[in-house]
Structure formats: structure tokens, C-alpha cells
Amino acid sequence: MVKQNVRVINKLGLHARAATKLVNEAAGYDCEILLCRDGQQADAKSIMGIMMLAASQGTELELVISGTDERSALHSIVDLFENRFGEDE
């Protein structure tokens, strides 16, 4: 199992479009990917779960990943957050 904290830095937060990208990315890995916020957990493969975190800009989340390709999953998902999900700001 690997863990890392990530911060939502894109302006719009984890709204529909960013959530869609996250789900599509997560779906490519054979592991369980969880996003945790203040005791609330969401499956990164569930668009509704992610949206229900209501994570706006500045929110701190913990990524908890376990499975065969957990290292590369962690790497690419952290990248997605840091690149603001491809959004301008």
C-alpha cells in the first residue's frame, strides 16, 4: 500500500471535468485507489464518489493506493493533480 497527500490546486476543484479525467486515469490501474478527506473516503474509479467529496481548490486529500501497479498509479495520479488536470489555472 502506498500513501501520499495531494492538494487540489486547479481553480475549479474536483468538479465534473476533473473528476472525469481522474476516473479515466484510475480505471487504467489494477488497484484500489482511495481519496480521503477528513474521514470521508471516495473510490477514485467512481465519478459520483469523487464529486461527493466536494473538494474545491485548496483542499488537502490523502491518496491511498493498494494493488499490483500501485507505484505507477500513485505517480500518474499525483501528476494529474499537479498539472491541474490540464486546466489553465
Partner: peptide
């Protein structure tokens, strides 16, 4: 429609 398709695949559904 794309969003609907993604929701349909959602584990919660």
C-alpha cells in the same frame, strides 16, 4: 451523454 455513460459505469450504480 458522456457524463451519463460514466455514471452508468460508476461502482455506486
Amino acid at each position: 451523454i458522456e457524463a451519463y455513460l460514466l455514471m452508468l459505469k460508476d461502482p455506486l450504480i
